[in-house]
Amino acid sequence: MTSAQDPDKELVQRIQNGDRPAFNQLVLKYRNRVMGIAARMLGDRGEAEELAQDVFVKVYRALGDFQGAALFSTWLFRVTANSCLNHRRKRRAEVRILDGAGDAALAVADPSSNPHQLLEQKELRIALEKSIQSLPEEQRIVLILRDVEGLSYEEIADSLELELGTVRSRLHRARLQVQAGIREKFSLDGRRSDRL
């Protein structure tokens, strides 16, 4: 998708003309995606929420200079990714997994599942989140943007200012590592390892 086809073009122009409600729309549209990237990159919900707010403040301040050379969403994810990487470099803390509240968010209600299946599904997703957290951050951000947020390779390359080949190789290594992590977890439990 080119910048001329940017679905956010009109909203961005309205914000650039001083339309505050348009900014609110943009925040509401993207807040959970920004929050998701931040939460999985930082591993802490509280810090992720603060960072996500800061991302929108930065975006609002810098939107006057946004020329539309890339999609707005690509630019937004670039700001988010850079903010996460900078935050982690500053913090230099141990990798933490999402807390209980985060875990609760992972439990997807499936009407067809019985309680045992729901518990298994929840455990699986917690294992998945842990595997994501254990990735090197340069692989993790690519995996999150591609497999969680659904960006194209090209959008990821633009957002992270990487070559396409780098995106491909980082993504593949990340996937294999996550797969290995889940396999390890469930082979130890003796469950579901055959599927992964």
């Binding site: 609110n24 959970n32 995606r33 929050m35 968010a105 998945l128």
Partner: peptide, 15 residues
């Protein structure tokens, strides 16, 4: 599985 992960929602007073 990665694609089915739920979004991590912001707080109600995020905006």
């Amino acid at each position: 599985l990665l694609g089915s992960l739920d979004p991590v929602e912001t707080s109600a007073d995020f905006l």
